[in-house]
Every structure is written in C-alpha cells, then in structure tokens.
Amino acid sequence: MSTFAGHGLECARSERIVFAGLDFAVESGAVLILTGPNGVGKSSLLRLMAGLLEPAAGRITWDGAPMADDPEAHGARLDYLGHLDGVKGLLTVAENLRFWTGLGGGRGAPDGAVKGALEATGLVRLADLPCRFLSAGQRRRLALARVIAGTRPLWLLDEPTSGLDHDAVGAFENAVGRHCRSRQGMAVIATHTALSLEGARTLELSPYAEKAREQAAEAAR
C-alpha cells in the first residue's frame, strides 16, 4: 500500500502563478480525476507530479519521502501520458510500442504485455502499419497501449480520451479499472470527459487558481 501526496503546491509558468496552496493524496488502488476549465493548471499539475516541472513551493511525497530526494526512483514508478503521443510516424505500431516498453522496465516488459496492450486498445490488426498512416484517435490508442503495457504503479494521464471513440473510451475505463484493482496501481487523470470509474475522486482545480490570482492581486497592491 503506497501513498502519493502533494502538500501546499504552487506552480509558476514564466513568472505567472498558475495555482497555489494545492494538496492532493492518492492511495494504491485509487483514481484521482483532475477537473477545471482550460488553463487552470491540470497539465502543469501532472507535469509537477511526473517531476518534469519543479514546484515553486510545496513538496510532493511518495510514502512520506520527498520526491525531490530521488527523482530517478520516482521516474521509475510512473508512466506519463502527455498531450503528445510520443509516436514515430516512420516506425510501425508494434515497433513504437516495443521500443517504449523495452525502455521502460528494468527487465523490459514481456512480449505478452505488448500483445495484451495491443488487444486492449484494439490495435492488433494495425500492428505492422507505419504510424504515419494512423488517425489521431489511433495514435492516442497507441500512446495508451504504451502505458497499459508498462508495469509501473502510478499512471499520470493528460486528456487520455481525446480523439477516442466510444468503444475505445470504454476499453480505457476497463484498463484503468484493472490497473487499480488487480495490480493495486493508482492513476491521476486530467479530463473533460465524464468517465465511469469506480471509486474515483475528483479534484477541482479552480479554487487553487483563484487563490493564486488573489495572491497576485495582493502582491500588486
């Protein structure tokens, strides 16, 4: 049982404070949904959680130990899915997936995991197709397949369902469910889509963005 938590987080993008005083906590088996209007800092929060961005204030901990103490260990327990898919158009679907899964784990994901992820995202028939022929939704599925094939406990997903059709969203919900229930993983998902995920908690970011604006107004006075 692990806990991933943030305390008093503040995020600055080029001088502007995006949000301030934000706390969150996720336990093994739990899902945290980040919501809020565009520009409220959902993607920034996910990048903070991944360690790609440094918080302007506050700290992020894993089982009580600060993430900043050992960023490499933190990188090794998470899978991050950003706006961009990380897909090379010149490589085939299977090549892309095998590259990332091979790079991911210390032991490398077994071939079974790659096949399973292709099945879960409905890409089996396209496995040998160069990715430049994929549609935006299919590329997104491939990016999700990379996360699903991995064995890391923490999933950080930024708009994972953008471009996905109805069936693919369902398959994605199942995959998150399996990850959290049978593997005791955890997921943080920024989304505008209403996902039916059992026991998911929601974190609305607007109040924290409001807090940042108030602080800025006060500082200006």
């Binding site: 991944a50 790609l52 990188g75 998470l78 961009l84 990380g86 090379k88 790079l103 210390g106």
Partner: peptide, 15 residues
Amino acid sequence: FEDGSLDLLVLGSLP
C-alpha cells in the same frame, strides 16, 4: 521534442 518522446526519455529509466 515535437512528438513528445523527449518527455518520456527524460522520465525513462535510462539516465
């Protein structure tokens, strides 16, 4: 950088 692979390489387990 443009296709997002760089984020994943930075986070990856290879230094």
